[in-house]
Nucleic acid binder design. Structure first.
Lengths: 239, 239
DNA sequence: GAGTGGTCTAGACCACGGT
DNA sequence: CCGTGGTCTAGACCACTCC
C-alpha cells in the first residue's frame, strides 16, 4: 500500500463506513491492524480516526475500540455541518435556483460608544456599515447587517457589496481565520418586518458573527436576520 | 517545573492569556520555548495549544507562530460554549433563581412509520414519549418533547421525568457519548402556543437532538421548543 | 490477565512566512 | 535563507474494558 498520509487513511475509512463495510461488527479494526494495513504510523491512524470522530461517524472508547455510530438517512442529515466561513450564502447552497442581493444601505462611519458595545469594535475606528437583503428564489429570506473594520479590510464599494464581499476579501489577501458565532431567536423589529418576507411570523433567527483575521484582529461584526422555517444549523457534541 | 501533562500546560497558558500576560506581542512563545519551560515533549505542548485553539483563544499560522485572538468582554461572551450534553437545563444555568419541570405527557408506545421517519428510530421498537415544560423563574420557557429507546435506557417513570432524566441515566450506567443537534426557527404550533409563555411572539426556537450511547446506538430523539429572546447558542468555526 | 485506546517522549523531515 | 508550525515515525507506559 505504500505510505499514506492521515488524509488518505481518513478518506478510505470514511468511504468504507459510509458503504457499510464495517456495519456487521459496528467497530473499526483496532489501531495496530490499521497501522499494518496502511503501512503507516500510529500518529497517522489516530489522526484519521480523530477526523472521523469530528464528523460524527465514530466514537472511541478506551479499552474497547472505535465504535461506529448508527447512521440513518435522517441522522446523516445532521452530518452536513454548516461549518463554513462564508456567511449564510452557502446554506442549502445546492438547492437554489436563484439568488440575488439587494444593498439596502452602504456607508462609512466612525464607531461611537453605543456601536462599540454592540459590535466589540473600539470607539473611534472607521467601519463600513452595510445592510443587504438576500433574495432566495424570489423570497426576501435574509437581512445581513455588516460592520467591517475599514483599516483591516480591503476597500469596499457598493458594487462589491452587491456581489460577494468574502470573495473580494480573498482576492485581496485578507484571510478570515476564525469566526465566533451566536445564534438567537428574537422578536422581529421594524426593519426586519419592512425588509423580510416574514408572512404571518413576527420573529427572526439572528446569527451574530464576529470574524478575526490571521493576525488575531477582529475585522467583522455581522448580524444575519433570517426568516423562520427555512434554515438549519447543525452541531456535534462529544463527550 | 518537573513533568506536566498537556492539561497542566493548557491551564497555565490559558490563565496567562486571560490575564494579559502575552498581550503585548499578541503571540504565544514558540513551541521550543514552551517545551523548555514546561520540560515536556512537543506532543504535550501542541496538544495544549490545540485545546486553546478549540476555545477560540489562539490561532496557529504555519511559519509564523501562534497568534492570540483579540478578546473583549463582548467577544468573550462567545466563548462560553454551551457544549453540554444535558439538554437545555444548563443554559444560562447560573442566573436562575427558580427552576421547575411540569410533565405534560408520559407514555410508552411502539414506533410506527410516521414516528420513525420523524425520530430516526426503527419501526416496532418501544419508546418512552414524554412532554415536559421547563418553567424558569415562573416563565414557561421550554417545551421538551423526548423519545427514548426503552430497550436501551433504564426504566423511566413520571417521577423521574419530573426531575433529571440525565442524572437518572448516569446513575444507571447509561453513557451518552455523542449528541447531534440541529437548530431551527419555526412557526409555533398549537401545542407550543398552549404550553409556552410566548407573549406576542408566534415563533419558537427548535433544538433537535439525537443522542447516541457509547456503543454507537441511538437512544434519544428530542425536540426542545424554546421561547424567543431568552436563549443563546455559541459556535466556533476555524479555518 | 490480555486487549485496546490515551498519553507521552525523542527524534526527523516538510511547508510556509518573512528577511 | 532561517524560523516556525505541520506531519510523521518508532517506541514506551498507563488506564480502562472485558473475560
Amino acid at each position: 500500500m505504500g505510505k499514506q498520509t492521515f488524509s488518505d487513511i481518513y478518506h478510505v475509512l470514511k468511504d468504507r463506513i459510509l458503504t457499510g463495510h464495517y456495519s456487521v461488527k459496528m467497530r473499526l479494526p483496532i489501531e495496530d491492524e490499521l497501522i499494518t494495513e496502511f503501512d503507516s504510523s500510529r500518529y497517522a491512524v489516530r489522526k484519521a480516526i480523530a477526523q472521523l470522530a469530528k464528523d460524527g461517524l465514530v466514537y472511541s472508547v478506551k479499552g474497547r475500540g472505535v465504535v461506529l455510530l448508527e447512521h440513518t438517512p435522517q441522522t446523516q442529515q445532521f452530518n452536513l455541518a454548516l461549518n463554513n466561513l462564508n456567511g449564510l450564502q452557502s446554506l442549502n447552497a445546492e438547492r437554489h435556483l436563484d439568488y440575488q442581493t439587494e444593498v439596502v444601505a452602504f456607508q462609512q462611519r466612525i464607531v461611537d460608544q453605543p456601536l462599540s458595545t454592540h459590535t466589540a469594535f473600539e470607539v473611534g475606528i472607521p467601519v463600513y456599515a452595510i445592510q443587504r437583503v438576500r433574495i432566495v428564489d424570489g423570497i426576501r429570506a435574509v437581512l445581513d447587517i455588516n460592520y467591517f473594520n475599514a483599516q483591516r479590510t480591503p476597500t469596499l464599494t457598493k458594487t462589491i457589496a452587491q456581489h460577494s464581499i468574502y470573495q473580494h476579501f480573498k482576492k485581496n489577501g485578507l484571510k478570515i481565520a476564525v469566526v465566533k458565532r451566536m445564534l438567537r431567536v428574537e422578536s422581529a423589529n421594524e426593519l426586519d418586518k419592512a425588509q423580510l418576507a416574514l408572512g404571518d411570523n413576527n420573529c427572526i433567527g439572528n446569527m451574530i458573527s464576529i470574524a478575526f483575521n490571521d493576525e488575531g484582529r477582529q475585522v467583522e461584526y455581522t448580524e444575519s436576520h433570517f426568516i423562520p422555517n427555512e434554515f438549519n444549523f447543525n452541531e456535534l457534541i462529544r463527550n
